[in-house]
């Protein structure tokens, strides 16, 4: 059982005539939660409202039971990694993080030590004394994450942290996010449009589109029951039709492409049906639905398999 860390209650936000968020109600639990959605879905707006950086037109956001709008000090327990550039490039990493630590309320006597601990954890070596403007995109991303960790928050909100990184940099950032939860129990909200990232490290997902939440819950639960088997059969047209009929009757036929079937059924049932209808099973393999397919279906407003 995981606790609720962030609750968003019936939030609406408009920018002029554009409705960025439309009566959004959703909860985020402990662990790593993916906030998924295409560009323009309203993810960044939702994140900024949770942070209290922008105010909603209606509705409220709570972080660990505190209303961010009324009590901005709750931001002391949140770390935020924005999507856009946000580093003071003339400074080096140590100066920048020290500045951020002080502004976050870390006492002077602890701040410098904390800066070096965080930089060491992130694998930033002597380059920490170079101007940030000379860093690679991956290094800059690490510094953005470091500034979110420097004041030891309980919750970290990351907005598109892997966008624009090369494969190695992306791997490093994903491993880091996972470690923050696994080793330090930092709850993370990962806002992204990259579904494979969410599928790899997140336990929960909130899917957004057009300013609305279209699906939310644990990833396992979301995909459970949607796994199936791919079966390629051989035989006369009549037998193949009978075989198809068996699964259609059970309402477990997911899709069919000529002699290739995707069915939601146990292998033993599939083999039994093949024997009964006289078809030869030429291939039988497990098929797991990806989050991407689920997301596309949710976007289209379809019930999978229907």
């Amino acid at each position: 059982m995981t606790g609720e860390i962030v609750k968003v209650n019936d939030i609406t936000k408009r920018f002029g005539h554009v409705v960025a968020l439309d009566h959004v109600t959703v909860s985020f639990c402990e662990g790593i939660t993916g906030l998924l959605g295409p560009n323009g879905a309203g993810k960044t707006t939702l994140v900024k409202i949770i942070m209290g950086i922008i105010l909603p037109d209606s509705g409220e956001a709570y972080v660990l039971g505190n209303n961010v709008e009324r009590d901005p000090e709750v931001r002391a327990i949140i770390g935020y990694v924005p999507e856009q550039d946000c580093l003071i490039e003339e400074m080096n990493a140590v100066e920048f993080l020290y500045h951020m630590a002080i502004i976050s309320g870390v006492p002077r006597k602890d701040a410098m030590e904390r800066v070096h601990i965080v930089l060491h954890y992130l694998g930033v070596g002597d380059e920490r004394y170079r101007a940030i403007s000379t860093y690679s995109a991956g290094m800059k991303q690490k510094i953005k994450i470091a500034q979110a960790l420097v004041h030891d928050p309980q919750i970290i909100i990351m907005d598109e942290p892997t966008t624009g990184l090369d494969p190695q940099g992306r791997e490093e950032v994903l491993a880091l996010i996972y470690d923050l939860w696994k080793s330090y129990r930092k709850s993370i909200i990962l806002s992204t449009h990259l579904l494979p990232d969410v599928e790899r490290i997140c336990s929960h997902v909130v899917m957004m589109s057009g300013g609305r939440v279209i699906e939310a819950g644990p990833i396992e639960g979301m995909l459970r029951g949607l796994d199936g088997y791919v079966v390629r059969v051989g035989g006369s047209g009549e037998d193949v039709e009978k075989f198809a009929e068996v699964f259609r009757d059970k309402n477990s036929l997911i899709s069919r492409d000529d002699n290739v079937f995707v069915v939601r059924s146990e292998p033993s049932d599939i083999l039994r049906a093949a024997a009964e209808t006289g078809v030869q099973v030429r291939y039988l393999g497990r098929r797991r639905e990806s989050l991407e397919e689920k997301f596309v279906c949710a976007l289209a407003g379809d019930e999978y398999g229907d």
């Binding site: 901005p72 931001r75 580093l87 951020m100």
Partner: peptide
């Protein structure tokens, strides 16, 4: 201006200060 240009304004506003 520099906070606006380099985007660090958002980091200040994400800190526990009004």
């Amino acid at each position: 201006s520099r906070d606006l240009k380099n985007g660090s304004i958002i980091l200040y506003l994400s800190r526990p200060i009004t």
